[in-house]
Design a protein around this nucleic acid. Structure first.
Lengths: 235, 235
DNA sequence: ACCTGAACACCGTTCAAGT
DNA sequence: ACCTGAACACCGTTCAAGT
């Protein structure tokens, strides 16, 4: 109960980089990207806007740090999940759920894909591919394909959330596809969209995400078999 | 030579939606996203900033219209490319090249994935999948996976370009991966990254993009065969 | 060394006033 | 109906002045 305060952190409300990032995450989780401002953040911390610059370089670095903290927590919570293909599915699904619950995370990963958070994600996926037996020369392409799929879905989801403010998604899709389909009079200008528009509206985001992962995993499996066959033939 | 001017467009410099969008595209192509402002745009058009709002609703709509115009041009220039898997490769590669040459296009597609431009892209890819013989129930997932991969790569590329302003990419990657790898003392914290970091730095973006497309196409092929076998068995 | 908060240099957008 | 351009309500960031 009587914890001895350290020299650097006497009071629990001392302004520190960790506390800034945690508060930023809280604001982002509650109100999305637009809720985080150096003004709202400094107000939440009961300090001046300029004070924050003593602990973070700028807003980009702050967002990257927030994303890194969040991603680390998500990956840790997801656990190991095993080393087979199921482990990759568990990891990617956990990430999808995190992005769904915290859309700002997805948009941040997409906005700056070279940030540490994305590198960590890349590494987590790549390690599992190695354990899965994917040949060395294909691991990089395979990991990239999986990460790109996650980033692509992440961008979709964040935009969908932004849209939700103005109109519900099914309504919007109806609006978006109808003029395209009927344009031109006779033959539909966008035949494929016209045919699958019902699926577009009614589909389950999560199931579709996993279907995409499965397609990529199947492709990776083909790559692995091809490579093994080539090795056996002596090349 | 003596073209009769229409009633609505007497002078060639009349302020019109088409001219606004074309000028916006020119600014974006020259200086990237940050070069397009209602102030720079109105200056380039020799008009007031407020005048633009008589022809476009807001900046989001302007960017969506610019992306749509650019994408339509790209898809038209790419031609049909045939209906087989090679047609999809031709189409996606043309898109990659367009995003490489005009990074603002990629970031705009990523920022608002429900915009007409993305729907058009989705349709173009979906139509080719139909012709390729992908079973009806899998077309949506397959098209989504391909579009997501394109969007994922698009986000990577735009961010890479933004980085290029401060430091070259190889240097940045060295900076980004080194502390991660050496952290912790003995065992590398990011074993996969440490192993493939050379590939990360030296890889060819275009080849990697195509490798990703090939992985997805291989996965789609597996899906197609599985479905055909199921149909033959009677289900 | 850290914090304050007014000030600066931008944005997108609006709107009374003109034509 | 269209255009003008000053004004408004925001941003991220800086910096002299305090403690």
């Amino acid at each position: 109960m009587t914890t001895t305060p350290t020299r650097t952190e006497r009071r629990s409300d001392a302004l520190t980089r960790r506390r800034i990032i945690d508060t930023a995450i809280a604001l982002l989780d509650e109100g999305g990207t637009e809720a985080l401002t150096f003004r709202t953040l400094s107000a939440a911390l009961s300090t001046g806007a300029g004070a924050l610059y003593h602990h973070v370089a700028n807003k980009g670095e702050l967002l990257a740090a927030a994303a890194m903290a969040k991603l680390t927590a998500v990956l840790a919570a997801a656990g190991d999940g095993g080393e087979a293909a199921g482990g990759i599915r568990a990891l990617t699904t956990a990430l999808f759920d995190a992005i769904t619950a915290h859309p700002w995370l997805g948009s941040q990963l997409v906005a700056a894909p070279w940030q540490p958070a994305v590198l960590q994600l890349f590494d987590a996926i790549g390690s599992k591919l190695t354990a899965l037996g994917v040949p060395e020369r294909s691991q990089f392409d395979a990991a990239s394909a999986l990460v790109h799929h996650i980033l692509g879905v992440a961008s979709q989801y964040d935009a969908g959330r932004r849209l939700a403010g103005t109109t519900s998604r099914p309504v919007f899709l109806d609006f978006a596809s109808t003029p395209l389909v009927e344009e031109g009079g006779e033959a539909p200008a966008y035949p494929f969209l016209a045919r699958v528009v019902r699926e577009l509206v009614e589909h389950d985001d999560r199931a579709q995400f996993q279907a995409g992962i499965d397609i990529i995993l199947a492709g990776i499996d083909v790559l692995t078999r091809t490579d093994r066959a080539a090795v056996q033939k002596g090349e």
